[in-house]
Structures are given as C-alpha cells and as structure tokens.
Amino acid sequence: MWSALGLLGVWSGVVVTWGTVAAVIGASALLATVVSVLPASLALRVRPVELAGTRE
C-alpha cells in the first residue's frame, strides 16, 4: 500500500527565503518575550500581602 501511495506523491522542494525565516523567528521571539514579561511585571507590582487580602 505504501509503495502505491508513493507512486501518487510528487516530491517538491519548499523554497523559503532567509528573510522570511528571520522575520518569523524574530516575530516569535518578540511575542514570546512580551507574553512572558507582561504577566511577570504585573505580578511583581502588587505586594503579596495585598494579593492575600490580609493586613500586616
């Protein structure tokens, strides 16, 4: 069965320019940085005592 399916398939190379690859990697790195830093910075603004709702 695999050999019959192999006869139906056409091999083609995927052509992607280095500029496109760099843009995708850069956008992914920027998005990952923003998504990880934003919640951490918001969590560090509020004191843990205020999050617990207790008074000192």
Rank of each mutant, 00 (worst) to 15 (best):
L7N: 13
T17P: 10
S3H: 08
G19C: 05
A43D: 04
R55M: 01
G6V: 08
G9P: 09
M1H: 08
E50A: 05
S3R: 09
L30G: 04
G53K: 01
V16Y: 11
G53P: 03
L51S: 00
S41P: 00
P39W: 09
S36K: 07
L7G: 09
V35T: 02
V37H: 01
T54L: 11
V46D: 05
W18E: 15
A29W: 07
G26V: 12
V15N: 12
G53E: 03
L30W: 05
E56L: 10
G26I: 14
G13D: 11
M1K: 14
W18C: 15
T20Y: 15
A4I: 07
L51Y: 01
V37I: 11
V24S: 14
A40D: 01
A32N: 03
A40V: 04
A43N: 11
L31H: 05
W2T: 08
M1V: 06
A27I: 11
V46F: 02
A43F: 07
A40Y: 12
P48E: 04
V10G: 09
S3L: 12
A32S: 05
I25V: 14
R55H: 00
G13F: 11
A23Y: 15
A40T: 11
L7P: 01
R55D: 04
V21M: 10
L30F: 06
T17N: 15
E56W: 06
P48F: 01
W2H: 13
R55Q: 02
G13W: 11
A27Q: 09
W18A: 14
A43I: 01
S36P: 01
A27K: 06
L8W: 10
V24E: 13
A43Q: 05
L44D: 08
G9Y: 15
S41M: 07
A4Q: 12
W2M: 10
S3W: 13
L7F: 05
